[in-house]
Design a protein around this nucleic acid. Structure first.
Lengths: 208, 208
DNA sequence: CGTGCTTACTTGAACACTCAATCAAGTGAG
DNA sequence: CTCACTTGATTGAGTGTTCAAGTAAGCACG
């Protein structure tokens, strides 16, 4: 049996992604972990600190737990981006569109400006974007010169999160698939434009 | 002084979008509305029914409260799409990236399959997409023949929701702007391809 | 006009319950 | 003897919801 601290952490990891942070009570975590409240509060000052520790696990686990399996046997950097998106599709599919991206769920669940938690969510998003940007940079020659790969990687995360949100709401993969198809088509057009045109419109000011 | 039922509804509308549904207690609503619990439960059987009524307000208010002001003085259908996105940008900016799209927040907040609520969220998303699709259909000649405008409208919503999520998390408009810039560039490329190519890749199967 | 009755709504205390968090007492290895 | 860790009952604030009692407007009947 694993040590108590880890049992609590994995229990929280599971429950937070299944029921969200607010809807998961400390008692739920204790039951799932087979621990007592005193033990939890021995390791973590508050429930929020459990969440922070879970978010650290996500931050550290993004490569070994998510990217490595998704990228197995996929070498082309652009295909890796879509393999990653496909991994999320698999999660949606396997859970009947119930669970998508836990980070995104928690991000929209917290409305109070909760500095440390928001910071960890930010770090998680940044890590995800950085890895995708890595793929895009590896394929930079396929895109028009001057393409902002960080902005494009951000757009990839946007596509994933926005698609997951709608698919979870409609309980259908349609919205997710339509979003990824849109992104794919965009990438195709960028690649097609790579040789012919100089650079696409960069960051565009959209308003006052 | 407005009738009690409306005061409760507007109070809930405000608090749900500020603090979310779960974090708003019935007592909060009553205080904000200046009403007593008995009055609330006279009009609404449960707290969830208050949420349903609020979501109906959103569904009915999308044109008069959101689209009409955003589209004032904007005639070009494609520009209307980006004017709508710009309206969300304004909301983010005015609230220091605290509040974005209330529907999206509530959608990710509720993890239990809560059929009536999820249905209303679905309806809200569908209404939004339908209006955007209306714009895209009006500009259909600018896009490659056979373009799936519903899928593209879904992708627009994806861009908005995904961008809002990240901007709220990072407390910066950067991610939202990068996402909208990506979408804009995609639309530009579609328009450029309209005359030359037949049709872009349609809905693309991404899974197993 | 006035009296009795119905109905719509308000009042706010009370209810049963859950919540995160605490703490005194205990365990067992080094 | 120490100290990291466990136990689980307990705390008290907060939760959604209920309810008996009360208010006031409207209507019918004489």
């Amino acid at each position: 049996m694993e040590p108590t601290r880890e049992r609590i952490l994995f229990a929280a990891l599971k429950l937070f992604s299944e029921k969200g942070y607010l809807s998961t009570s400390v008692a739920d975590i204790l039951k799932e972990a087979g621990a007592n409240s005193g033990s939890l509060y021995h390791f973590f000052p508050t429930k929020q600190d459990v969440l922070l520790a879970v978010l650290e696990m996500y931050r550290d686990g993004i490569y070994p737990m998510l990217l490595a399996p998704a990228w197995e046997g996929v070498d082309d950097p652009v295909e890796r981006v879509f393999a990653l998106l496909n991994a999320y599709r698999g999660m949606l599919k396997d859970t009947a569109c119930l669970y998508g991206c836990p980070i995104g769920s928690i991000a929209l669940e917290l409305h109070e400006p909760d500095p440390p938690v928001r910071e960890m969510l930010s770090v998680n998003f940044e890590g995800w974007v950085r890895h995708v940007k890595g793929c895009l940079d590896a394929a930079k020659s396929q895109f028009p010169a001057g393409t902002d790969t960080h902005a494009l990687a951000t757009f990839v995360l946007t596509t994933m999160e926005g698609g997951v949100m709608q698919s979870r709401t409609h309980r259908t993969l349609d919205a997710f698939d339509a979003s990824v198809a849109g992104l794919r088509n965009y990438v195709n057009l960028l690649q097609a434009a790579a040789g012919t045109v100089a650079a696409p419109a960069e960051r565009q000011e959209t308003g006052t």
